[in-house]
Every structure is written in structure tokens, then in C-alpha cells.
Simulated scan of single mutants.
Amino acid sequence: MDTPPEERFDRITRLAQGLFGVSGASICLLGENRQYLKSFVGPLSRESERPGTFCTETIKSPKTMIVENALTDERFKQSPFVTGYPHIQFYAGCPLTGPGGTHVGVFCIIDQSPRTFSAEQQKILEDLTAIIQREMNLSWDIDNGARVQRALLPATPLAPAGYSLGTCFYPAFGLSGDFYDLGTTPSGLFRVTVGDAMGKGIGPGLVAGTVGAAFARTGWHADPSRIFEDVAENLDETLARLGSYATVFHAAIDPVTGVGRYADAGQGLSYILRADNTIERLSPTGPPLGLVPGPNWDTQTFTLDPGDAILVPTDGLLDLHGGDLGRLAAAIADLRGDVDPAAAVRELCDRRGKRVLLDDITAVLLRRDTQSA
């Protein structure tokens, strides 16, 4: 209810209007006291009260309901939708089912003149309804998967003493092909892992979960390059069968000294934001996971001095800024200063007023406080 129009549904209502030569067609969702038209064409209103509506009667039965002349039908001849706007005289509707098996809506066509409706026409209406039902089922599956994916993300831990932390996780299509993990290693280092599986949607979401779980199973004991090698040993065959790969950045930072050790499997978009307003890009240290057989990764170091920060995004952030590294660097420059990292990373990843986004966005920003020593 109350979600905006979508072309995948609007296309079907337009098609039905033309196929049947009727004045109107709609996909109607029913709440307790009102009905909401997810999609409609013709002389209909987006929302109305339920009493007296044809769709309320339709959901009482699993069958298609056909009213060839509402003026002679005892159920509807006094309905305000017959005696008043939109003056319905012909109606045909098929119920739509929710995830629990309950009827939650109707796909229907209307006209302002009585008409006959053949068995062949009824079959076409029911076929169109099946297409709508499949789209609705897919949406519910994706929404449910997205809820599970978010629930499985690690709870954002408290930043180490002397540091502050911000994160964002914005899927492009419900389920994200990105993942991240944060926490403290057994030796007391603060770890940051951010990854991006190839593609978007359900498949990459499953791959991202698999890759993230493989990193977690390492226990975070080893050097970053060794962790990548362990993950690759466990996942290379799986990724090859899937025809997929993943870019991943992993770092372990000593909160006391600010020294970090990292390995980067093809991500190449992590930055050190210096307190003196300079920006350093951390280079990849090896190929993406699953892209080439028998890969190796180097471990490199960086240091966060008081006032410095490390930003680790996925490539969706680059896409958000037009694929232009210069524009992204300029946006990153605005993060410098004393702005809270949580607010800063949300602003950097904010889609409002920008181009239509077709990629997932994930980013982690960890800043060492200026008072740290």
C-alpha cells in the first residue's frame, strides 16, 4: 500500500486497457478500510474507501468475478461506484494473493457500458493476472531477503578508544552484492573488511553473503594477505562454478599506534584522509577473489595520525559521482575536518538530487581523534 507507481505494473494495465477496449484497468491493493490502486489507467482514483467496491467482493472468491451489467446486479446496482463516479457498468476482476495465501488485491478492468465477456477474454485476463502475481511474489521475496541480509550484517561495534566511526549500506535493488564486517581481532587490532560481489540483485547478494562468511570463518588471526589466501583456497572453485568474483579490502589497525596493515583484492578505492587536507589512495595489492587461479596478495601498511581517517567504499560510490575519480576525490575532500564520521559518510553516499543509481553503495569511515597521541 502507498508505494509509488512502477512501470512493470503500469505496462500491464495499459496493455489490458487496449486489449479489452475498456475505459479503465487497475491493480488494486486492499487495506482494512480502504483500497489503493498500485497502477491504473482510465477514470479511476488512486485511493478510495472499501465499502461498496467491486474489488472487496472479488477477494471473497478464488475465481474471476465478472459483472456484465452492474445496473441489473443486486450486489452493485446501488453502489456509489455505479450510481456515481466512475459510473461502472461492466467489471471483471481476478484476486491477487499475498505471501500467506490471503487475497490482498485484485487486477480488474471496467467500462461505463454493459458488455459481454467471453471465456477466451477471461483466460487472457487471468494470464495477465498471473504475470502480476509473479512480479508481486518476486518483490516480496526480495524484500524478505533484504530484511534477512540486513539482520545478518554485523552490528556496528563501538569505535576503539580515541577513534570515531561511520558506515552506510545502500542496496540498489533490495538485496545488495556488497558486504562489510567490523570488529576487533583476537590480538586487539580493529579490523575493517568491505567487499563487493560482481553484479546486483539476488545472485550477487548470495555471493556476497558467502564471501563475507568465508572471511569470518578465518577467525581474523592472520596477516591480511594470509586471510585472503585462506578465503581464496576455500572459495575459488565455488566462484568459478558461479562465474563470479568479488573485490574486497581488509585492514587491521593498531588503535594505539594508528598503524594499519591491509590487503586489497581489486577494490582500489580506499583513501587516507590526512589532517593536513591531503588525500592518499591505497592501491590494490592483488586481483579480485575468484578472477584468476592461484592468486597472491601483498600486505601493505599505512598510518593514521591524530586527525587522519580511512575511507573504504565500494565502487557504487564512484558510480554515484559519475564514475569520475576527480569528482569523487572532491566529494571526499569535503569530509575533512571535525565533521562526525557517521554524518559525513551518510552525506557522501546520499543519492538525493544525483543521477539514477544502478549499483549498491557501501562505505566505512574510521577517523582517529585529533586528541589521540
Rank of each mutant, 00 (worst) to 15 (best):
S113L: 15
L328V: 00
A70S: 08
N144C: 05
A172R: 11
P224W: 06
S244D: 07
I272M: 05
D305W: 02
R34N: 11
N69H: 04
Y85L: 08
Y262L: 10
S118Q: 02
G100W: 12
G199D: 03
M1D: 08
D298G: 08
R327P: 04
G98N: 12
I66C: 00
P62I: 09
G219Y: 09
T129Q: 09
A161Q: 04
A342R: 15
N69C: 03
W297G: 04
F228C: 04
G337P: 13
N277E: 10
V248P: 00
L152I: 05
E229M: 06
G322R: 07
M136N: 04
W297E: 05
A208M: 03
F228Q: 04
G101M: 04
L182R: 06
H103T: 05
G294Q: 08
N277A: 14
Q112H: 12
R274N: 07
I59D: 14
P80M: 13
A251V: 06
A92S: 05
I279P: 12
N144P: 00
E126N: 02
L291Y: 04
F228V: 01
F40Q: 01
L242Y: 01
L158I: 07
P99W: 15
N137K: 14
F228H: 03
P114F: 02
L325F: 14
R46H: 14
L311Y: 01
T247K: 02
I88K: 01
A343E: 15
S176H: 02
F169G: 03
L357Q: 15
S45E: 15
R274P: 01
F190Y: 08
L335G: 12
L30V: 01
V207C: 11
L235H: 06
M65A: 09
S187F: 14
T303M: 06
D178K: 03
G353R: 07
G52R: 09
N33T: 14
G162V: 02
N137S: 12
